[in-house]
């Protein structure tokens, strides 16, 4: 018997898109729930605010040094 290719493939489309959406929808819900649970019981320790300024200061120093070196090399 000749199979109606288009008809079959339309059915595949309905099945496929439904499964993909159900899968991702459930996944989204699970992710939301886990985010709530995890942030309730194991909140991430916020890194102390003292480190960032020092590191940015350091990177300023590094930037200054790099600039100086490139300038020096240009002049050579």
């Amino acid at each position: 018997m000749e199979i109606d290719l288009v008809g079959e493939s339309l059915k595949f489309m309905v099945l496929g898109m439904t499964i993909v959406f159900i899968f991702l929808f459930v996944l989204v819900q699970l992710v939301k729930v886990q985010a709530k649970i995890i942030n309730m019981f194991f909140p991430e320790k916020v890194p102390s605010a003292t480190t960032p300024p020092s590191s940015s200061q350091e990177s300023d120093h590094v930037a200054a040094i790099i600039a100086a070196v490139t300038e020096f090399r240009k002049n050579q």
């Binding site: 288009v6 493939s9 339309l10 595949f12 489309m13 496929g16 898109m17 993909v20 959406f21 899968f23 991702l24 929808f25 996944l27 989204v28 992710v31």
Partner: peptide
């Protein structure tokens, strides 16, 4: 994430 699902229409649409 649902957008990543919608784009799979490319697969099934071209199957048809």
């Amino acid at each position: 994430a649902l957008l990543g699902g919608a784009a799979q229409f490319g697969i099934f649409g071209s199957l048809v």
